[in-house]
Amino acid sequence: MAVATTEFSVRETEIPGLLVFDITSITDERGWFQEKFHRAKLVAAGLPESFEVVQTSVSYNRRAGVTRGFHAEPWDKYISVVSGRVFCAYLDLRRGSFGRVVTVEIDANRAVFLPRGVANSFQTLADDTYYLYSVNRHWSADEYDEYVFVNLADPQVGVRWPIPLDEAVLSERDRNHAGLADARPFEVPA
């Protein structure tokens, strides 16, 4: 008898290294089961073999319309959603592909691999959304100066948010980031 198992399939995007994974789940009358991160299966599907998780964090978002970002950080990130739906906008801030934007909706059956230097932002589309992300470098307040931020409403970036930003829930910090024209390219170590 064959046993059902989670499967991962990948598609590349217009941003080099930004990968979108579709993930199956096993469902029956009890609910569902899914491997959120299975290193061997993900690497076989296209995840960079060098990606080694050292920290996993959860962002709980109480209601639809919570919007966070754009933040480019000095690590790679694997992003998934445990419950809810999220509209994600990614902005490449690396030299050579600076300014490219990709948007994707993720839910329990879709995940994203985000390479360092690509700014992450998201907007929740459902109440009680649990956004899960694993990184290959520990968060540190001492490295905050290495981050690159861009304003979510910058017309040069041109993201069409499902919930208009004037109706969304944003931190003051995210609301007041400078525009893309003032962002320095993210330096990715060789």
Rank of each mutant, 00 (worst) to 15 (best):
R110Y: 05
Y78L: 09
Y78N: 06
D142F: 15
T103G: 03
Y133G: 04
Y131R: 10
K77L: 06
L93I: 08
D127K: 12
S134E: 05
E105R: 02
T103R: 09
S97K: 07
A111F: 12
R116W: 09
L132M: 12
T129H: 13
R62E: 14
T103K: 07
Y144I: 15
A126C: 11
L125F: 02
Y131K: 13
S83R: 10
V118H: 00
Y147A: 13
L125S: 01
V159A: 05
R94C: 02
V101S: 04
N120H: 15
D145Y: 11
G69S: 03
S97V: 07
Y131W: 15
D127W: 14
G99I: 07
D107Y: 12
S134K: 05
V135Q: 02
P115G: 00
T103W: 10
T124G: 09
R100W: 06
D145I: 08
S57L: 12
S59W: 03
N151D: 09
S121E: 05
F87R: 01
D92N: 08
S80P: 14
E146K: 13
T124P: 04
C88G: 09
G84E: 05
R85L: 00
G158F: 08
S97E: 11
I106K: 08
R85H: 05
V118S: 00
Q156V: 13
R95N: 03
D92T: 04
A108M: 11
A111H: 12
F87Y: 08
D107R: 12
S97T: 12
V86I: 00
L152P: 10
V101F: 03
G65V: 08
Q156I: 09
W139K: 09
N109D: 12
R100C: 07
A141Y: 14
R137A: 10
R95L: 03
W161I: 11
H138K: 13
A64W: 07
R116Y: 10
A111Q: 13
F70P: 07
E146R: 15
R100T: 13
Y78V: 09
H71N: 10
P74S: 14
E73H: 11
G158R: 10
D107T: 06
A108G: 15
A126V: 08
V102Y: 07
F98R: 03
L114D: 04
E105V: 01
P155G: 09
Y133F: 11
P115C: 01
D154T: 07
V102W: 07
Y144D: 14
V82H: 14
D92A: 08
R100G: 08
S121M: 04
F122Y: 15
E146H: 12
F113H: 07
